[in-house]
Design a protein around this nucleic acid. Structure first.
Lengths: 173, 173
DNA sequence: ATTGATCCTTACGTTCACGTAAGCTTTTGG
DNA sequence: CCAAAAGCTTACGTGAACGTAAGGATCAAT
């Protein structure tokens, strides 16, 4: 049976071990992330009680780990990025309500755009560098393959494209 | 004046501090890399004597750090990659000599190709993931910008694209 | 020969990002 | 209701990648 109910919805809540497995990490890591402020302290929990998470937290956590991996950020750096994402979520929430004056509305959107732009810049930069590296490697690869083909051409189908056995072939020289 | 000469060429050799600055790192890091086997022990140095490096070492070191950063590798992982690059350098050296039989020649080239392919795979994978992330961000950015434009359109040129002042505009409601 | 500046080795210290263990409480399946 | 499983807190341990300090040796220029 599901551990508990969110008191209002009907999606079965997850315990820290479940969340860990679904996000491919460990409970310790989750607690640690909470400790350093990367994850919000699971709502309304009288210290000592078990943490409960919603399904959405799985995605959130995976996203956090993805950013960490891909961008090689420290948890501290991640925190600032996530703070920005939090802010964007705030904005989305605010914007859903109808009673926001258009001026304020615009302000919020501009802010969100700022956050995204900064993050995008970071990602673009990194992506570009990686692309460069990839190109360089591809170039080298091409050159090597060309040399292999040239070699094969000179010795007229003496050996197949398989990894050559130590067999000796009556060749040039 | 240059610290010393390589005994045969005339490019002024670098001391560890110079190398560090040129590669934007610290002497400690260089010594550490040497210690763990990432960098070769600077040639023929009676322990106690100063390390001397050639200009080429600058590029090599920068490349090492670039790989570390971009791929987020541990020094241990880097070591295997660098070992492969070493091997490729070996191959290049061997291939320069004329007296290598074509069979052996081909073997060497295939080996090099293998190394490159493995590295390329790694880089490609990473690059793809980053590209995905970038796309997602770009999408979000588009959506936000669209919402801003829509907002601007509705309130007929009431405010410019500058960050809006807290001035109130006679708007909807 | 002397003197700063830089370098050497050795060794202990540090930060990050968790792992691991202990002792206890909460939760859950039966 | 009760035991086993999972979780909680607290705290100490760990590996990677260096930083920093001590005490002495080297090096380039004077």
């Amino acid at each position: 049976m599901p551990p508990s109910r969110p008191a209002d919805a009907d999606t079965p809540m997850l315990r820290i071990g479940d969340l860990a497995k679904l996000a491919e990490t460990t409970p310790r890591t989750i607690r640690y992330y909470e400790e350093v402020g990367l994850l919000p302290e699971a709502a309304e929990r009288p210290s000592g009680q078990h943490r409960l998470y919603s399904r959405a937290e799985v995605e959130r956590l995976r996203e956090v780990m993805r950013l960490k991996e891909l961008l090689g950020l420290t948890l501290e750096e991640l925190k600032t990025i996530l703070a920005a994402e939090e802010a964007r979520a705030e904005v989305r929430a605010q914007l859903k309500r109808e009673d926001v004056p258009p001026a304020r509305r615009r302000e919020l959107l501009e802010e969100a755009r700022g956050h995204i732009d900064r993050q995008l810049e970071l990602v673009r930069h990194r992506a570009a560098e990686l692309a460069k590296l990839q190109d360089e490697l591809s170039e080298t690869r091409k050159r090597v393959r060309r040399r292999i083909r040239e070699l094969d051409a000179r010795s007229e189908g003496a050996f197949p494209p398989e990894p050559p056995l130590p067999a000796v072939i009556e060749g040039g020289s």
